[in-house]
Computed example of a mutant assay.
Amino acid sequence: MSMSLRPVMEQWNTHTSCFIEHDQIIALFQELSARVDTLCSEVDYGERTVIWLQDGQKLLDFIAHDPTFNAASLQQSLEDAGVEVNGLDLAALVNNMRNMAATWRSSIGSAGDLRFYVDAISL
C-alpha cells in the first residue's frame, strides 16, 4: 500500500446559512453539477462534509445568471430524485447563494475547482 502526503491550502470565505438538511444540500449540489455538466463529489470529515466541484466558474455563472436557478425548478428536480425539501427554506437558500456567487468566485482554486464545507449542525 502506498501513501502520499501533500499540503492543502484552505481559504475560508463568506458563508451562508443553509436552512435545509445536510442530505438535501448534498442532493442540491449534485443536481447543480448535473445542470452545468461538471463533476461533483463529497467526502465526510466528522463534523463537516466537503463538496468538490470540478468547474467552479461554470457553477457560479449558473448560480448568478441562469433563470433556471430558482427554488421551484430545483425543488421539482429534487423531488423527482426522491428528496423532499421545504420550498420556502430552499427559496431562502437559493436567494442567498445567488447573492453570494460573486464573493465565492475568490474561492475558485488554481485548477478551476470549487469546494464548499457543509458544517454539521442541528436545525
Rank of each mutant, 00 (worst) to 15 (best):
M1S: 15
S2Q: 09
S2K: 07
M3W: 03
L5Y: 03
P7L: 14
P7Q: 09
V8P: 02
V8D: 08
V8M: 13
M9E: 12
E10P: 06
E10L: 15
W12P: 06
T14K: 09
H15G: 14
T16G: 12
S17C: 14
C18F: 03
C18M: 15
F19P: 00
F19V: 03
I20Y: 01
I20P: 06
E21Y: 07
D23A: 12
D23H: 09
Q24R: 03
Q24M: 07
I25C: 14
I25E: 10
A27D: 09
L28T: 05
E31I: 08
L32N: 01
S33Y: 00
A34L: 09
R35M: 10
V36A: 10
D37C: 09
D37G: 05
D37L: 08
T38W: 05
T38V: 13
L39E: 15
L39V: 08
L39R: 07
C40Y: 08
C40E: 14
S41H: 08
E42P: 00
V43S: 11
Y45Q: 10
G46R: 02
G46S: 12
G46I: 06
E47A: 12
E47W: 00
T49D: 07
T49N: 05
V50K: 06
V50R: 06
V50T: 10
V50I: 14
V50Y: 06
W52Y: 07
L53G: 03
L53I: 13
Q54H: 11
Q54T: 14
Q54K: 12
D55W: 00
D55A: 12
G56E: 01
Q57P: 01
K58W: 05
L59D: 04
L60A: 02
L60N: 00
L60K: 02
L60W: 01
A64M: 08
H65F: 13
D66N: 14
D66H: 13
D66A: 15
P67W: 02
F69M: 11
F69L: 08
F69C: 13
N70P: 02
Q75R: 08
Q75W: 00
Q75N: 09
Q76K: 04
D80E: 15
A81P: 01
A81G: 12
V85H: 04
V85C: 11
G87P: 04
L88G: 05
L88R: 04
D89Y: 04
D89H: 08
A91M: 12
A91K: 11
A91W: 00
A92I: 08
L93K: 05
V94T: 08
V94R: 00
N96T: 04
M97S: 11
R98M: 09
N99F: 06
N99S: 15
N99M: 12
N99H: 07
N99R: 05
M100K: 04
M100E: 11
M100A: 15
A101D: 13
T103S: 15
W104C: 00
R105G: 06
S106W: 03
S107K: 01
I108G: 09
I108R: 01
S110P: 03
S110F: 02
A111M: 11
A111G: 14
D113G: 13
D113N: 10
D113C: 07
D113P: 01
L114G: 04
L114F: 11
R115L: 09
R115Q: 12
F116P: 01
Y117G: 02
Y117R: 02
V118T: 00
I121G: 11
L123V: 09
